[in-house]
Design a protein around this nucleic acid. Structure first.
Lengths: 147, 147
DNA sequence: ACACGAAGCTTCGTATGCGAAGTATCGTAC
DNA sequence: GTACGATACTTCGCATACGAAGCTTCGTGT
């Protein structure tokens, strides 16, 4: 395989992998009429309690402006709401509405549980190999930035 | 690490990796005022000659509707153009404009060359480990679809 | 007190990205 | 030769996604 093909092959596979993970997540959350990112927000809030926008942004690896848009739609559908922090007027705390909490806590934790299972299918050794390979790839991409 | 953390860790890392690759590509192409996907289209056309929309779609792992939009913008900027196939009226052939070819062929092949180099930094053994890990992950995601 | 940079969000413009529905053309069965 | 399913694209509606610019609030220095 020449370098061109090899590079594209890896990029394609990484993309496909990310798509599969994303698609998997989306499919899980779809039962609750949530998209992947929306489900991730709600999952984080269920698990960690109220979060700042910046914390959500950091946890999800997305820019604040993107998170802001996702929250707009979640708020529109009455799933979460924004609340100004009392201690710092700049900060917005995102919380799950009581209504959604009441209606969806059970089914949602169920979804999350199934999501957790995804990697349970792997042996510890396989997990190690995966993380190692991700390390290598990350390093390569990092190094290549200086070419 | 509990299962939740482990799953999210892998997802985050895969996403970060895909972002790095994508960002790297975008940075390279930015010199020619092209976004990542746009650069990929032009790169494929330079390398393989005129292509059908469906072929581009398949090569890039994107839906036809997405490719169609990318082509709209490339056409707007006079970088590529659509041409109806003579043998099959349904088929559209995408070609690079002479203008862009003349102005950008050199710098573009330069970009592509640097892109090729990204994985040259890896040893063959590392490449093998990467592809193996990607295999494992793909298999896991595939299997977990039936949970 | 007040000026002023920094921090936290939102808004805006643009580019992806997808699936569903629509359009045009091709092949084929009849 | 014509009806009709299949194929190749486009269009539409929506949800991400980002960076740049704007707004408000906080801290700090004076």
């Amino acid at each position: 395989m020449d370098p061109f093909e090899r590079s594209y092959e890896v990029v394609r596979r990484v993309k496909k992998l990310k798509d599969s993970l994303h698609g998997n997540m989306s499919r899980l959350f779809k039962e609750g009429n949530l998209t992947g990112p929306q489900g991730m927000v709600v999952g984080l809030l269920f698990r960690m309690g109220p979060l700042k926008i910046s914390e959500l942004s950091q946890q999800m690896g997305l820019s604040m402006s993107t998170v802001s848009g996702i929250l707009d739609r979640l708020e529109r559908d009455n799933i979460v709401y924004r609340e100004k922090s009392e201690t710092d007027g700049r900060v917005i705390l995102v919380k799950i509405t009581e209504e959604f909490k009441k209606n969806s806590k059970h089914s949602f934790s169920n979804m999350n549980h199934r999501w957790d299972k995804i990697l349970d299918l792997a042996t510890d050794e396989e997990i190690d190999r995966i993380l190692e390979a991700l390390d290598i790839l990350e390093r390569l991409v990092e190094e290549s930035r200086n070419l």
